[in-house]
Design a protein around this nucleic acid. Sequence first.
DNA 1: TATGATTAGGTCAGAATCAGTCCTAATTAA
DNA 2: TTAATTAGGACTGATTCTGACCTAATCATA
Lengths: 316, 316
Amino acid sequence: MYSPTTRLLTILELLQSHRQLSGSQLASRLEISPRSIRRYIVMLQDMGIPIEAERGPDGAYYLGRGVKLPPLMINNQEASALVLGLLVLQAFHFPVELVAIEGALAKLERVMPEALLEQVRALQAALSFNVVASPTTLQPSIVARLSLAVHKCQSLSMRYMSLSGTESTRLFDAYGIVYYQGFWYAVGFCHTRRDLRTFRLDRISELQATDHTFDQPEGFDPIQHVHNAFATMPGQYPVEILLETSMSHVQQVLPPAAGSFEATPAGILWRREVADLWPTALLLLKFDFPVIIRQPPELRTIMQQLAAKALRLSEE
Amino acid sequence: MYSPTTRLLTILELLQSHRQLSGSQLASRLEISPRSIRRYIVMLQDMGIPIEAERGPDGAYYLGRGVKLPPLMINNQEASALVLGLLVLQAFHFPVELVAIEGALAKLERVMPEALLEQVRALQAALSFNVVASPTTLQPSIVARLSLAVHKCQSLSMRYMSLSGTESTRLFDAYGIVYYQGFWYAVGFCHTRRDLRTFRLDRISELQATDHTFDQPEGFDPIQHVHNAFATMPGQYPVEILLETSMSHVQQVLPPAAGSFEATPAGILWRREVADLWPTALLLLKFDFPVIIRQPPELRTIMQQLAAKALRLSEE
DNA sequence: TATGATTAGGTCAGAATCAGTCCTAATTAA
DNA sequence: TTAATTAGGACTGATTCTGACCTAATCATA
């Protein structure tokens, strides 16, 4: 704590680990005059470090937000947490700039004490994450803009290429972003299709926030919806099924995203649209309450086929 | 970049973002004489920052490892990556000291530019990880020691409390650590039971590395093993089904957690143990390839019931 | 083996910086 | 109002820093 430079760093460190400190506190810790502390504060500010001050009694200096990040003073524990975090991001193909992850990793690993690095590497080698490798890469900037739009409830205009390869522009209210089996998806309401939809992020080519805002539906669970969306890709068959049970039971068994539910005297009328009827058919077999198929007739045919298949399986 | 004090920090920053820099490069960047650079290097070294040098042509200065961490100079991108990493660690209940995560988070968030922080917070709020919340906490120190033992192939002596509540001391060769459905497990060879075993980390109370070392088996996949261990949990129905398709197709349709798969001339033999046969029965109806039920006979009965149910549904 | 580029460091004088001690002003909570 | 705090000007003397000019040591390459 002798040279001016170390003093400067010490002040920075003190301000980083304490919420706020008064000039006299700093002065006594560094054993220099308060006047010099004020001078150091100015020096730090000149360096772009946003030190702010509260005046008056109980006034103090504290770190504010700037445009640039000040040098971070971290201890060993924190460093290993940081490295581990970065490694996890890498393993999960998190939508963050790779350069950023690698840059931060390089900086940290280059200066970490040997013993610490060994510990972290051991953890890294020993831990197995249950991760499906993602075959595609996606642009972090898209994810960043998307998440901001989710946060601010801004509708989005985007260009999307469907799995079949056709590209289209859609107006979309994003409710959440979900990682599911190696891919990242945006879940929300598609104005073009007027339905809840799931879009794979790596198939979005353009994304633009609009002025239009929307209301986030209460209690919507993006994960649930993605799970469900995989069983029920939206499409051309209008399905109408009468569930002879209570609404509360339905809500336990089916996610809100599964379609619309209407209470009728005969039971709960469940409506949705699907391209593939098979998942719905299987779903119906799962239920432990009586079910009546209203629409479409094709679903009855599929049920017959399922019955035949089940019978065949039971005999062989 | 004018005062001597700021120059020191600039040199540090340059050394952190570049792998290595020669004295003359540094001198021209800071617009001071090479002699002064040399002096600054000494000052940094005196401050405990391990700057090392390569002599001769193409010689240069570079950062080495010390006992203490130097101030980290990071940019905005790197900061958001770091914060995200920490958030993920938190979400996954990663075995890292909570204090470390929170300390680092506090330091980073306190100084991050407003816009950046908002972006990260938005991401955090929008992203849904498919994570099961862990009901237990575990000691990071145990994980650290365990992972070191995995790395160094040291046998471990540990006290473990089984699910039934009996405590025992075991000699254990840890092969890996796996996160599976909200819990952390150590996978390896248990000398006491003379078998591959899986131990939940939060049930380990004492852990001690021994002098004894072991050989890590070639090509052992800890995740695979945990999956298997769960698929073959003692349920009462041993299920054995012949899937008449290729192994690669099976792997696309079924997760590794579904059980064990064995290639036979007739097809893939799928074995698992379950307590409830219904989910398996429904699963079989999903497949688009021929399937033969070998075991148990009860599964055939269930298939008949399913067939009846499907038929009933198709008629109404 | 010779050469040149580089780090390492000693020395010295003059310039620049820094620290402390005075001040005064502005701000703000009690 | 009062007291505590930040903010900062001015001066002086001590300290430090800088650049210039040295000499060694090291090491890759021609």
